[in-house]
Amino acid sequence: MRHLPHGCALLIALVALLPASCQRPDPEPGAAPEVAVQAPSSGAASSAPRTDGSHGPAPPDGVQPGEMRPPADAPVAARWLAPRAALVRGEQALLGVRLVLAPGWHVYWPGQNDSGAPPHLAPALPEGVSAGAVRWPPPERHVGAGDVLDHVLEDAATLLLPVSVAADAPLGDVVLRARLDWIVCRDVCLMDGAELELPLQIVEAGTAPAARPEDAALLDAAEARLPGGEPAGLTLARDGDALVLRVPGANGLQFFPASDGLPLQDVLGTCAAHADTLRLQRDTRQHGTERLRGVLLVQRPDQPNTEHLVDRALP
């Protein structure tokens, strides 16, 4: 085949960058009127804030001692987690789906990724048990060859599934079922899926079922890993098609835009900076909601990083 001269390839690459508005962020705090901090809105994005309002250093949610890592030719192992041996009529419970990955492999967080797709969980729960939205752990940015930016989960991750048990749910032995489909990648990708099953019971209100301590510990760790509410002092201002997001006192920010939020351009170039400000570019060609949604990682001098849910109407 005929190879393009190198100069040509460079020119093509440069021109391709033009329509994508790939400017690096140009922090200008205070350049536009800023809006006051709002309370975090309730769990519309892909993960929900912790309810206690605090967000200290997160306990580890990686592969735990005793957890078997799957082999590279079948790099995902998935199972249900349940905190107790039974669901109780009229109560809520936080269940989980635990993913353990072979070393070097990743699955995708439901963000504005250049490739991949998040694991798709389709629960089939017993009569009288209803599920809420899945809560996801915060992701990491992963940049592959060709500047392919993805938000990924590596090693191990717990997807949290809040459930409500009706007061008249049929009592007795039940089976939690779910279909989980995923694409998992390293240098290559594999698509696969699994049927997950966990036998449990549904018991009368007022009963205290036996704990399942290993699952309960993983669920607690996963809940502690969830992003907190908005960071103190966060402001969001509009400047043309740009959105200026600022967290006073931060010396580093990374925004992981959610797939169901405002579509952004050049997430690689604009959503991370060693600064207290990000200048986000909306993608006007792509249809989407008018809310900025995602997870914001905040770095502060001499403090551990914190992660926060952002879900705001545009100013």
Partner: peptide, 16 residues
């Protein structure tokens, strides 16, 4: 009507 969407697939295996 829908000029842009997010594609879903494996990453392109560009040379390094």
């Amino acid at each position: 009507a829908t000029p842009k969407t997010k594609p879903f697939g494996c990453s392109v295996k560009y040379g390094d």
